[in-house]
């Protein structure tokens, strides 16, 4: 498999805090890669740098052979990298279907159109997408009144509208009931396998991480401390130390 996303030597400081310290990794096409680590490990910073919301201090990000290090979020999206956010961000005054329609309008460069009836544009394609994520019946509902689990699905449909080749998800199941989590991730993985789409995600729920990732990357204090198959990472002593903490006072049982 070829390398789809290549991150080389990424650094980012905020004042005296090092949020990202020489982070390098590759994601092969169609690979599902999970990034885990304790609070403040630099997961969100890493995602924001890849997504174009933050500019790295040093390093390079290449996606499908193109340098996207300095690209803003709009350019990153156009290059075929879709994302969903930690705090769900849907357009609350839009209906479920319209949330996807607006992404399709943007994809077709219709954002300056002052004339067409937006409600009718790309209606069928949007409906197909929300059907696919299982909320087709809510097409006409306002996103402002939807349950959280359904909002997550709307967000997924928005991100999928541009047919991304890589989907980046920051804590896709945070705030969901345990039963819904697995269902959502099963859906995402199934769709990704079918479309040949890669996935890069962070997650706190370890069942989700080890159940859905091909490979796991562990961050701590801005550095990559381990990466490899789920089993290898699970067996890594350093990773266990980060998660359980020894802090120089180890009880022999820890």
């Amino acid at each position: 498999m070829s390398v789809q996303l290549s991150v080389q030597g990424l650094c980012k400081r905020f004042g005296g805090v090092v949020a990202s310290d020489d982070v390098s990794f590759d994601l092969k096409s169609e690979e599902h890669l999970a990034v885990i680590g304790p609070n403040g490990a630099g997961k969100s910073t890493l995602f924001k740098m890849i997504g174009g919301q933050l500019r790295p201090d040093a390093g390079q990000i290449r996606f499908d052979g193109h340098d996207i290090t300095k690209a803003g979020p709009r350019a990153v999206w156009r290059s075929g990298l879709g994302q969903t956010f930690q705090i769900t961000a849907t357009f609350s005054s839009f209906t479920v279907r319209e949330n996807v329609q607006i992404a399709l309008m943007s994809l077709n460069r219709q954002t300056r159109n002052l004339w067409a009836a937006a409600h009718e544009l790309h209606r069928d394609e949007a409906q197909a997408l929300i059907d696919a994520v299982g909320i087709g019946d809510f097409a006409e509902r306002s996103c402002g009144v939807l349950a959280y689990g359904d909002l997550k699905r709307v967000e997924l449909a928005i991100a999928l509208a541009s047919r991304p080749r890589l989907l980046m998800m920051d804590e896709p199941t945070a705030g969901m009931a345990p039963a819904e989590r697995r269902a959502l991730m099963d859906l995402v993985t199934k769709m990704a396998r079918r479309e040949g789409m890669g996935i890069l995600f962070t997650e706190h729920d370890m069942d989700i991480v080890f159940g859905h990732a091909d490979r796991v990357l562990v961050l701590d204090q801005g550095c990559i401390v381990a990466q490899g198959s789920p089993d290898a990472v699970r067996a890594d002593a350093k990773v266990q130390e980060i998660y359980l903490g020894t802090g120089g006072m180890a009880d022999e049982r820890v």
């Binding site: 705090i87 769900t88 939807l146 349950a147 959280y148 909002l151 945070a174 705030g175 969901m176 009931a177």
Partner: peptide, 8 residues
């Protein structure tokens, strides 16, 4: 938090 159910 908003619609997200954090504590059950």
């Amino acid at each position: 938090y908003g619609a997200a159910h954090i504590l059950h």
